[in-house]
Simulated assay, not measured.
Amino acid sequence: MYNEDIKVEAIHAGLETGILREKLGEIDIVSIGSNIYDVHTPDEHFSISSTVRTIEFLAEVLRQIR
């Protein structure tokens, strides 16, 4: 959608997806999100433009699978 390669990486932030997989069984789970900085500190903030792109991407995925 944005003429950029998708960046795939494993990060230490899988608590919620781990709980879902535990409850639902062997399923594929993907977590996406905007760019967040200084997480869990008083300076935590996020990129609004990245959030807009994430919402647009998710909306397009949902359009294509319905």
Rank of each mutant, 00 (worst) to 15 (best):
Y2M: 07
H45L: 02
D38A: 10
S50P: 03
T41Q: 08
S31D: 01
I11S: 12
T17I: 14
R53C: 10
Y2L: 10
I32C: 03
V39S: 08
V61T: 04
R66W: 04
T41H: 03
L20S: 11
E56R: 13
G18Q: 04
A59Q: 10
G18N: 03
V30F: 03
E22A: 14
E16G: 05
I55C: 14
E16I: 13
E22Q: 14
H45Y: 09
P42N: 07
A10V: 03
L62P: 00
S49Q: 14
R66L: 11
L24P: 03
E44P: 02
H45P: 00
R66H: 12
V8L: 10
K23G: 00
Q64I: 10
G14L: 09
N35T: 12
E4R: 13
G14A: 00
D28Q: 05
N35R: 13
L58K: 09
K7H: 04
P42A: 06
S47M: 03
T54W: 06
I19T: 04
G18P: 00
T17W: 00
A59G: 06
S34D: 05
E22L: 10
E44I: 07
L24V: 09
L20C: 12
I29L: 06
D28C: 01
S47H: 01
K7L: 09
H12A: 07
E4T: 12
E44M: 02
I27S: 08
